[in-house]
Design a protein around this nucleic acid. Structure first.
Lengths: 193, 193, 193, 193
DNA sequence: CATGAATGAGTATTCATTCAT
DNA sequence: GATGAATGAATACTCATTCAT
């Protein structure tokens, strides 16, 4: 896998930042070009259109999220510990990369997201689902569709990161740590601690 | 409270539907006008700009959500039952009004949402937070910030409704019913059933 | 001649004031309506269009100017005195009615002025020209076309009033009084004082 | 001083001509674009808005007028001769460039002219005023504020050019030549010819 | 007479995209 | 590859005018 061209990366990062601040519509190609230090036309060497740029950026960013999941999802570690690692791993990633978080949320709720494959066929969700399958199979979790558990867990992480990032609700560190606990208590099989 | 003018309502409803399908940017005023059966200029009698239209629509729609919360949040009913009523009430509302759900999500993640008041000062969240305060005070829930519980519960409802509405994951009715149970189990105080 | 209807006059005066501040284009009918305290539709009872309103206003205002000329242009008074009376009469009128001055200037230089009759057939200029005809006939003025003298005198008055009104050049009262003297010295026949 | 870009000049000239015929408001950007042979968007590469275009055009045109004054205002030529050169120089310029004359008059009386510097700080008027200062200092002119003389002289030239251009008063060449003479006779010191 | 909601053609401006250099 | 001037379709918004009440 060849490393991403210097300029291509600059375009990605600029778009990410600008979309966070201004939204898709508030981010003209000319603005991306200027911020990335390239000419407007240059963007069209790397991306055939603005839509394509946005979609490729989504994939680029999703790969980062996937690598977080892959890092934390370790079969040799006890499931409970793994669950918390995953929660904090993803939360930490979104917390450290608020641009990504904001871009993701905008993308998911935009018409861009229309043509995407069903969740079953998307690597990120496959990983997520299989993680919860393990938990169920090993008897740690309730007998509930792993897909449901995956969605709930991820939305829980995302909404925590969003609310912290928005700064519209003051939180203490300690309070945040209670959140994955709540999630675990809700999902865990009755006989598990 | 005077009833909303006929045309104003038509504009609201058209916007809601069109924004769902096309997003903010994909919904020109001319399209709203045509769909609502009014002239383009007429919209500007009721709303001073597109931005204002969007923001007022948000308020209009949020009032509907608030009325759902008010309906279900009944002090005389045992808290546990009330919790499930609230969950299903909101879920049902979003499920029946997918336009609202989609509009909300787009709005919340858009630059429009910038100038809004902090969550503490918004009626919907106040109601939500006070509901969970009651649960904590009565000893049904864990000793966790009611704000956190409110946000988690609402994001749980929204993501459930979203995933069902997206049709990108097949669900059975019965599976959905497990979700508020998971949430309850996670939030409830240790000694409560 | 019936007196002008109450509302018609209010519309005239509002237009005069608003056009002075904002120009023709910057003065929508709705703004005139509001300022005059009438409904937008009402204006169309009195004037068939905005263009007509502007043109009628020009006539309305020109009558005021004409009455100034008629007042000062007195055959029984010596010409020289009459000349200075006329100069100060018109200057005083424009100075006291800066709205009129500004409106006039805008009108004269606008496309509205296109369809107007040649100066020979316009009452104001007829009066002006005949005043200077007298001065020439009586031997007070140079043997120059009275039309030229009329135009020069009026433009002299107008530019004096404009520069004072603009406030962009500080003047003392005494300085202004020198101006008609300059004009008189320029126009008077060589042997006249 | 780099030469003005080809297209920028075409836009200037087109605007000048069209504004003369139709006024500011009657001259949409699309019309300017078509007349200048460029796309509508191109105008916005050179001028950030219609207002800016108008204001820059004013400066562009004023420079032409200034160069006429500079050409005629020659210290080595006797003042009286210089005066007539200046009068005919400016008159000739306005007569040959009726677009400029009309544009100027419209501009000066429009709201655009609001934010302009006081006359003392505008190059054109500075030149004009210093010309008359010389005349006073050398004893050719009456002891009157040079600013007043400058304004009167210029308005005299402009109104002559306007009335000729309007075609609403028939003139013979010889009659026009009497006008600067009238002006000179009015301004000159008593003992001067 | 008076109103003001409604109309819709018209306008300034933006911005994704192209292409000659 | 890289540039950025040029394009022109698309869009928010204005405002003169109409007409049902």
């Amino acid at each position: 896998m060849e490393p991403i061209a210097e300029k291509k990366k600059a375009i990605f990062e600029s778009t990410l930042e600008l979309v966070r601040e201004n939204g898709f519509h508030g981010t003209p190609m000319s603005m991306v070009a200027k911020h990335a230090g390239v000419a407007a036309g240059t963007i069209y060497h790397y991306f055939e259109s603005k839509d394509k740029l946005i979609c490729e950026l989504f994939c680029y960013v999703q790969k980062q999220v996937i690598s977080v999941v892959e890092r934390e999802n370790c079969q040799t570690i006890p499931f409970r510990e793994c669950f918390f690692n995953l929660w904090f791993g993803l939360y930490g990633f979104y917390h450290t990369n608020p641009n990504v978080l904001k871009f993701f949320e905008q993308f998911v709720n935009s018409p861009f997201n229309a043509g995407r494959p069903s969740l079953e066929h998307d690597t990120f969700h496959q990983l997520l689902f299989s993680f919860f399958e393990r938990g169920i199979a090993e008897g740690h979790l309730k007998q509930v569709s792993p897909k449901i558990l995956g969605i709930l867990a991820h939305s829980n992480i995302v909404s925590t990161a969003k609310i912290v990032a928005s700064g519209r609700l003051a939180f203490e560190e300690a309070e945040i740590e209670q959140i994955p606990q709540i999630l675990w208590d809700g999902m865990k099989a009755p006989n598990i601690t």
